[in-house]
Amino acid sequence: MPRPQGFAYEERKDGSVVLTHHGRAAGVLRGARAAAFLAEAEAGDAQLVMARWTGAYRFGNERRARDHPRNQGGRIRRG
C-alpha cells in the first residue's frame, strides 16, 4: 500500500486542530482528542497519523478488492 501523502494540520488559538487533505477540510479535533493527536503526530510519521485519524488510511486497496472473486456478486470471472 502506498504511503499516505497530502495531509496537513493547523493548530488554532482555541486549542483545536484542523486536518486537511490536499487543501480540503478532513476533520476538526478539539479538547483531549486534539492533544492526543498532536502528541502522536510529533512522535511518529505525521502523514500516517493524519491518515489514520481522518479514516483515509484505506485508500489504495479498494481497486484490488473490487476485482476479487468473492466481490463479483456470485459471478465467476475467468480470463
Rank of each mutant, 00 (worst) to 15 (best):
P2M: 03
R3S: 07
R3T: 03
Q5C: 10
G6H: 11
G6W: 06
G6C: 07
G6N: 09
F7R: 02
F7W: 09
A8K: 13
E10S: 04
E10N: 01
R12T: 01
K13A: 12
K13R: 13
G15A: 00
G15W: 08
V17Q: 01
V17N: 02
V18W: 10
L19C: 02
H21G: 02
H22D: 12
R24C: 09
A25P: 07
A26F: 03
A26H: 04
G27Q: 11
G27F: 11
L29M: 04
R30W: 08
G31A: 00
R33T: 02
R33N: 05
R33Q: 13
R33G: 00
A34Q: 00
A36C: 03
F37H: 10
L38W: 13
A39Y: 07
A39Q: 07
A41P: 02
A41C: 09
E42I: 06
E42T: 14
A43W: 14
G44C: 07
G44K: 15
D45C: 06
D45R: 07
A46W: 14
Q47F: 10
Q47H: 15
L48G: 12
L48Q: 13
V49M: 02
V49R: 05
A51V: 06
R52Q: 07
R52M: 05
R52Y: 04
T54S: 10
T54E: 03
T54G: 01
T54V: 04
Y57S: 02
R58N: 01
R58Y: 05
N61A: 00
N61Q: 03
E62W: 14
E62F: 14
E62V: 04
R63W: 13
R63H: 14
A65Q: 10
R66C: 09
D67S: 06
D67G: 07
D67V: 14
H68M: 15
H68V: 10
P69N: 06
P69L: 13
R70D: 14
R70S: 14
R70V: 12
N71K: 11
N71G: 09
G74Y: 15
R75L: 15
R75K: 13
I76C: 13
R77V: 14
R78C: 07
G79C: 05
